[in-house]
Each structure stands twice: as C-alpha cells, then as structure tokens.
Design a binder for these strands. Structure first.
Lengths: 202, 202, 202, 202
DNA sequence: TTCTAATCGAGACGGTACGTCCCGTCTTGCC
DNA sequence: GGCAAGACGGGACGTACCGTCTCGATTAGAA
C-alpha cells in the first residue's frame, strides 16, 4: 500500500506530489531566470501542472516564491552547542553561516532573495521573522553567555554586536563575493570579539 | 584627387535637455512606484518625450535605470579631510555615510538599487566600480593614516577592516532599517576602532 | 501497459461571444476609420476585450480583417430563380448585384476589400473562391440556360460573357462610383445580351 | 528708406539628380514591398538621401507615391490613329491597353496602384484625371467616330459603351489575372461592338 | 569676391500602432 | 471536487514608422 505517510510536517507546502512538483519547478526556474524572470506559466508548464494549481495554493507569484524560499531557508536553522569559550562559539557561528551560504543552490537564488527582500516589504517582514531573527538570536545567545562568563564586559550593546557578527561576513559572501578562507575567518573572529567588547557606552 | 565629398554633418547627437527631462521623470516615477512599478510609457509621458527617445539612449528599462541611478549615486563621492585622529576620521566617515543614505530620495530608491545590484552582474560590476570602490578607498585611506600615526598596529587586514567600517552601518540603514542615533554611532565608532586593531594575523 | 493517463480536457475553445464582439467592433471601426485607420487597440477596447483575444484568433490585423470581411461578404450568396427568359434573368442578376453592393456598410468597406484583394495574394485566392466564383457560376448558369433555350448561339465564350455580366457594373459601382439608375440598367441589360451573343469565334 | 537689401541668391532649386534617385528608389521599394510596406526611411536610405529631401518635395508619403506613379502612368498616353474602321479601332485600343499593362513593372505596382486608388479619395481624383479620363476620352472618340460613320446607331450610351471597352479587359488583366491571347481579344472585340450598338434607349 | 540663403545627408524628435509576453482570474471538460 | 489546459481582460514591453526639426557642411546666385 501507499499510505501517504505524513512524516512530521516540514510546513504547509510539499504535502502533495503536485505541490512538490511545483516547488521543484519553481526552484529550477528561479535558478535559471531569477525572481523577475520567473513566469508562472513557465513554472506550471515545467511542473506539468495547470496554472490554477498554483493559484489555488498561493495568491500571487511573489507569495509563492516567498513561501517556497522562506520555507527552504528556514529549514536549516543554526544549532550551535555551547562550547564554553567565546572564540570557539563565534568561529562556529561564522563557519555555520559560511556553510549555509555555500549551499550549491544559494549563490544564484540567495542574491535574488536579498533583492526581493529589499524590494518587497511584506516579504521583508516574513523573512526577517523566519530567517534573520533566529540567526540574530543565536548570535545574541553566544554573546550573552560570554557576558555571563565574564569574557565580555557587562554593558555591551548586544544588538550592535550581533550586527558585527553577521554583517561583515554577509557583505563578503553575498555582495562583494570575495573568497573567505580560514585565515580570514580567524582574523574576523578576533575582530568580532574585540569589537563586541568595545560596544559599551563611552 | 576626386574623392566624392560627403555632404552634410556626420549625424546629430542626443539632446542634453531631453536626457535631463527623462532622468528627472524617471527618478520621480521611481520614487512613486519603484523599479518594477515604473513603466517606460509613464516616464516618456511625464518627460513629455516619445518612447523612442528612451530606447535611443538605453536598450531596455533596466539598463536605463541602472545608468541613471548609478550615475546619480556615483556623483556624491565622499570627501573626507584628515583630522589627524582616527576616532574623528571614523566618525566622520560614518556620519557621511548616514548623510548620503539619509538623502530624501534614498530610502525608496536605494533599496531598489541594491536589489538590482545583486540581480544583475553587469550592473554589479559598474556599481562596484563607481560607488563601492571610491568609498572603500576612502575608508582604507583613513585606516592607513592611522597605521602610519601608530594609532593602529602595522599588521592589520585593511580589507577586512574596511568591511567593518561599512557593513554594520549599511546593514542597519539599508536592510534592517533600525534607527541610527548619535549614541549608536558613538558605540559603533568604538567598535570599529577596536575591531580594526584586532584584524592582525594571529 | 501503464500509459500515464492525461488528466483534464485537451484545451478550451475560443469563446463564440468574444469572437462576435470582436467582429462587430471591427466592422464599426472599419466603417468609421477604414482599413488603415483601424487600430487593434481600438477594436479590442470597443469590444471590451484584451488585445490578446484578437491575436489568439488571427496572426495580424490584416489577417483578421480579411477573415471577417471575407466571411461577411461570402454569406450573401446570390439565389436566382430561372425566369425562363434571358433578359429577365440578366436584369435580375444585375439588380441583385446592385442590391448587394448597395448595402449601407458596403461603400466604405467594399473599396477597402478590393484594395486588400489586389494587395494580398493569399486573401486574393480566398476571396476568389468564396465571393467571385459563386457569382460567376450564377452568371454562367443564366447564360447556359439561354443557350439551351436557343436565346443565345451555341458557340459563345461563356467565360468572356460572364466577364461582361459582371465587370461594367462593378466598374461603375465600386470604382467610378457613377450612379446606376433603372435606365442605365436597362441599357446595360441590352448591351450584355447583344455582347454575349457576339462572343463566338469569328 | 533703408530697405534691407536681400543679399545672396533667393535659394537654389531642388536638385534634379536627387529627385531622380528618390524616384528610382521609391519604385524599387514599391515593387518589393508594396504601397503600405514602403517606408520613407527605406526610400531615403536606398536613395542615399536625407529624409528631409523627400519632405522638401512632397508633403507626405502618399503624396509622393501619387505624384511619382501618377506621372509615370500618365506618360504613356494612348495615341490612336483613326483607322476608319470601328473593329480595327477597338482592337487597337485593346492592344494598347494590353501593351501598357504588360509593362514589366506593372504587375506588382499596378495592383497596388488600384488598391490605393480605391483607398484614397484624393489620389482617386488625381488618378481619374490623369489616367482614366484620357483613356476614356480615347475610347469615346473611337465610338463617336463610328457613330458619325454610321457603324454604330446614333442613340447609343457613349459612357456605358466606354465602360464596355475598358472594364472586361481590365477585369482580366488586373483582377482575375486570366491570360489574354489573340483569340480572346478577337471575341472581345466582337462583343464590344455588338454590345455598344445595343446601348440605345429601349 | 564675398556674402548669404537654401540645399544637402544624417538622424533625433514626439507620437502612435504594432505584435509579444506575462499576470491573476475564469471556464470547460476529464478523471 | 481536483485537475490540465488554456482563454480571458488588462497592461507593459520593445520595435517600426510617420512627419517635423536641428545640425554642420556645401553650393551657387547676388552684390
């Protein structure tokens, strides 16, 4: 028999084979033509599906892509153990970020994701909630633990320090595209620790 | 010699006032409707110009906007005097960045600019050259002067430190949109100086 | 065998009321502005229809007009009873032609029709088959019956006599536009009968 | 008084070779693309001439083509001697018509000419005056001479008989495109003479 | 000879229509 | 009732052409 085994739902989508086919086709089109270049007709054709099948699931092209991408990105959430040492924690955070962005489908889709993120306020909020916030919280946890351990001074600006943990790496990975090797990550780690410690009110 | 003398001039040039009218109309439309919402017919109508006048200058809507915006952004280059003090130099750099992004037309257009930046490789390179590079060089100059004065250690990673001077502020201003007040800029300045000093090889 | 059964219907048909609305709008525009002055946008707007609905049916403006007009003209075929007398038959044929061309929408559209007839070879053939040929056959029938009755000699050139029955009247009606009253039709009838009888090989 | 004496010449005349080049290019384009397909830019390019040179001479594309074609057609006016015999005169008229239409450039351009004739009222009048009227007068002269000689009855409808001399042949040559050989011309001559004689009031 | 007005080639200008493509909705029949 | 196929209204895109205008270079009549 072929009982449609519901295995711990990954999210509302991908429940039926039709939805899965749409998702696959959409990602292919996204990688080939980008967000703006993707047309609903092309996705439906590629998925061997009627256009109505798409609009039965999402109210618009943007909503569909937000949902599909958001879900895909949200799936790989950071899971960082407490190493008991700030330097190791920070380095692990950076490594995880590099690993996630290094996903083979990321280079092309990721940029379009950011493009649409800044373009579309609704998606902006959705993505902030599902993607950015969890990562910011993970970074904040690392910093707070270090404060508790006394590795960082008490009065630091956590929010600013979190920006510091995320933005220089994202700039390199997503925007400037410069290579990020071990040595750079080492120096970046030092930079983050020193910088974070200096975010106290003067 | 009996060269059959060519009559007439070699051909008229594009008329400057027309280009100016198009640019103005395009910026208005951009601010009102955004990159995607901007239509070439609307720009032409607003500029009191035929659509052909647009397509005589640029091969497509995207090319037009890239060119116009890129040029506009490239125009306001940082011009930072040497204050002789690293902290003052860094703070001036941050203030300048805030001021440029705070330009009333920026909030809406700037995001679209970044969106297209990551989407279009050709524009990406163009924008890197005319917008990012000059600012990176200004930041690098500040840091190098500090090294010469002994305010920063000799072995620091200038490129990484430049990232540090730019990315956290850009993240706040362009992406997260969190407010940036004087106090935050003070703490960010401290963070940058401490972080930059720590980018030495371990 | 496991032929993957195709789901859904094979595809929707073009909707009749839409086609009718387009045809009506096209004829209105044609009468008002002529073939060249008719614009597809105007037809679509007048029909309350998207431009795509037009181009889904015909590949171009000319093809659309050829099809619509050709079909309209082809519809009113001559239906001429055998009066048993050549003169009455010929006169009835002329009257029918005048009546058909006297249709209020004809004066303007008819000329454009001929214009396109001579311009476009494909339309030319189509129109010859649906419009000219039936009328030529009706004329030929009249003449052949007269030959059988002995009203016309046996050796006449039917094709040439058919030209005679059609061309002088068409010249007046369509090209020179001179008025055609009862007296002219009387004289033309005499002319045709005498001329037809003289088309024998010398 | 101080009449500001106008120095310099009153202005050079339009240059003949330029006009000739335009005419040649226009006829080429006309033969290749037809009246509607001919574009002024293409004519100017082909003639190696600026578009202004065209509009300096004619107010519009239609006016230019009307003028050029009208003049070309008007040049070969019928010049028919009085043979003293109606049959020979009619046959000569038909032969001349065949010869004129048989001109190698005619087949393609001639049809477009008629097309535009029925489409464009202004051209219609111009062409009627320069092309049709002289030929109708030539035909009328032939008929009137026959009446004077007693070869045709006195009360015939000259206008209708002129239609008879022109329209069947034109129908064949220009519209139906059927071949016209000697035998057909013989029968047509007989038909015309008999028909013309029968155009008397009943 | 010198002035100067009109012509020349080239092509930009405003405007209008074309034919294509896409979005999001709606309709029709097959499963 | 879900599905494929695709027609539907709407609207933007990028192209082509018309008839006008501007530009600098050329040319030939009038002073």
């Amino acid at each position: 028999m072929d009982t449609p085994q519901r295995r711990g739902r990954r999210g509302p989508a991908l429940q039926t084979p039709v939805t899965a086919a749409i998702a696959s086709a959409a990602f292919d089109e996204l990688a080939e033509n980008g967000w703006q270049g993707l047309s609903m007709d092309a996705v439906a054709r590629r998925a061997g599906v009627g256009k109505a099948a798409l609009y039965r699931r999402w109210p618009s092209k943007d909503a569909m892509l937000m949902d599909l991408i958001g879900e895909a990105v949200a799936r790989n959430l950071p899971d960082l153990p407490d190493s008991g040492d700030l330097r190791r924690d920070v380095r692990a955070f950076l490594d995880l970020t590099v690993a996630q962005v290094a996903d083979p489908r990321m280079p092309r889709i990721g940029l379009d994701l950011l493009a649409e993120y800044v373009r579309n306020p609704a998606f902006s909020e959705e993505l902030r909630r599902t993607v950015a916030q969890p990562r910011r919280e993970a970074a904040a946890t690392i910093l707070n633990r270090a404060v508790e351990r006394g590795e960082l001074p008490a009065g630091i600006d956590i929010s600013l320090a979190v920006d510091l943990m995320i933005s220089p790496l994202v700039l390199r990975l997503v925007i400037s595209g410069e290579p990020v090797d071990e040595a750079v990550l080492d120096r970046m780690t030092s930079m983050i620790i020193a910088g974070a410690a200096a975010t106290t009110a003067p």
